[in-house]
Simulated assay, not measured.
Amino acid sequence: MTDHSLQRRLEGMLLGGERKYTRLEVAQRAGVAQERSRKLWQALGFASVGDDEVVFTDADVEAVRTTDRLIGTGLLHRDLETAVARTVGLHLSRLAEWQSQLLWSLIEQHPELAADEQQLVDLVRRLLPELERVQNFVWRRHLAAYAGRALAADEDLESRAQVVGFVDMVGYTRMTRRVDEAELGEVLERFEALATELIAEHRGRVVKMIGDEVLFVSDSPVEAAEVALSLAERTSADERLPPVRAGLAAGRVLSRFGDVYGSVVNLASRLTSMARPGTVLVDRELATELARVPEYELRTRRPVSVRGYNRVRSAALRRARDLAATSRAAAPDERSPSDP
């Protein structure tokens, strides 16, 4: 059996049928305009295809019909369908890439799978429904959590007051030049696992992992502070991880298709770039909130000019108990809140 034959067998299983329609035939069978079906296909992250290429299945036709029904119910506005498709395609393509890598890693560990194509096909056939069940369960749990928050909220969920945090590993670029791929993968895995664990524990939300950096949001100033401080503490105690630095800012944030935007996001990013290894910087608004919490100590820093901001006013956030063991003298660029 050739590799092309194996590819066709796996493809038919994953796509739920054989390729037998062109793009124009899909649009006709689904009852939607041809240009609309083309935009949806591209928004999902798939390459453009010619009008005469037979690449679509019955599942593709049903997917277009389902999208059309969602718009008909009013749940999804027609002006947003392309943006929604783009977001779904972006996140699911990353998931599919990772799962494919897992499969090939399994094959490398068990050469007998590569030698027996039928055994490989049977393995994928068994794993596919299990993966679907897990993904469906996780999606429903998250949907239930977010739906509960939406029903309990008394403000606009798309634009509301939140705390935005960036935490990144210090010296990551230098580290990539001196470690091999296996070591780098282990560092990234440990950092991502620790970050997602702490953010979930403190009821925040991971917006995205960007290599050596995590972006998260929280509805609570205290919980956001705990995430940043705990990450700094845990990475400092782990010899296999480089130190981290963090920046937190509070204010109105625009949430759109799982990502966040606005000046607060930009400010949190700038604060991160200003922070020393192992430290957490917060903006003035968040410092005012956290100053009321006795467990924390804040030391204001002199204003600094960074890209996009002339004079960024910030404060270094620490745990109050940590100060008893350190010198009372402030760092050269730090002053106590009562200093002029």
Rank of each mutant, 00 (worst) to 15 (best):
residue 240 R to G: 15
residue 183 E to A: 13
residue 265 V to Y: 08
residue 286 L to V: 02
residue 72 G to W: 01
residue 8 R to L: 11
residue 89 G to D: 05
residue 222 V to T: 15
residue 185 G to P: 06
residue 323 L to R: 14
residue 7 Q to C: 02
residue 275 A to W: 00
residue 85 A to N: 15
residue 82 T to D: 14
residue 103 L to I: 13
residue 244 V to N: 03
residue 192 E to D: 12
residue 77 H to V: 04
residue 229 L to N: 04
residue 131 L to C: 11
residue 186 E to S: 12
residue 30 A to R: 00
residue 19 R to A: 13
residue 75 L to K: 08
residue 12 G to C: 10
residue 123 L to R: 08
residue 112 E to L: 10
residue 181 E to F: 15
residue 188 L to W: 05
residue 57 T to N: 06
residue 22 T to H: 10
residue 24 L to N: 04
residue 232 A to I: 02
residue 17 G to N: 01
residue 214 V to A: 06
residue 39 K to H: 09
residue 171 G to F: 03
residue 287 A to V: 02
residue 252 R to Y: 05
residue 282 V to I: 05
residue 252 R to W: 11
residue 207 V to Q: 04
residue 266 N to R: 01
residue 272 T to P: 00
residue 217 V to F: 07
residue 264 V to C: 03
residue 53 E to V: 05
residue 24 L to I: 11
residue 132 E to V: 12
residue 139 W to K: 11
residue 79 D to H: 10
residue 336 S to P: 02
residue 55 V to N: 06
residue 214 V to L: 06
residue 39 K to E: 13
residue 299 R to K: 10
residue 152 A to N: 08
residue 296 Y to E: 04
residue 43 A to C: 06
residue 279 T to S: 13
residue 181 E to P: 13
residue 161 A to K: 10
residue 186 E to F: 01
residue 323 L to M: 13
residue 317 L to K: 08
residue 132 E to A: 14
residue 18 E to K: 09
residue 239 E to I: 01
residue 89 G to K: 03
residue 16 G to S: 09
residue 200 A to C: 08
residue 309 Y to H: 01
residue 169 M to F: 00
residue 52 D to G: 02
residue 15 L to A: 11
residue 217 V to S: 11
residue 285 E to H: 12
residue 117 E to A: 14
residue 70 L to N: 04
residue 15 L to V: 07
residue 276 R to Y: 10
residue 22 T to S: 14
residue 187 V to G: 01
residue 24 L to P: 00
residue 159 S to R: 15
residue 324 A to H: 10
residue 177 R to V: 09
residue 134 V to M: 12
residue 66 T to H: 14
residue 7 Q to R: 12
residue 205 R to S: 13
residue 244 V to Y: 04
residue 17 G to E: 11
residue 262 G to T: 10
residue 320 A to I: 03
residue 284 R to W: 00
residue 247 G to R: 04
residue 311 R to L: 00
residue 292 R to H: 13
residue 169 M to N: 01
residue 302 R to W: 06
residue 190 R to E: 03
residue 125 R to I: 00
residue 231 L to Y: 05
residue 287 A to R: 06
residue 53 E to R: 07
residue 110 H to E: 14
residue 153 A to K: 07
residue 81 E to L: 06
residue 214 V to Q: 02
residue 303 P to C: 00
residue 135 Q to T: 12
residue 322 D to P: 09
residue 33 A to G: 14
residue 140 R to P: 00
residue 209 M to A: 02
residue 249 A to R: 00
residue 106 L to D: 10
residue 226 E to C: 09
residue 18 E to I: 07
residue 29 R to N: 04
residue 83 A to K: 05
residue 262 G to A: 03
residue 300 T to E: 08
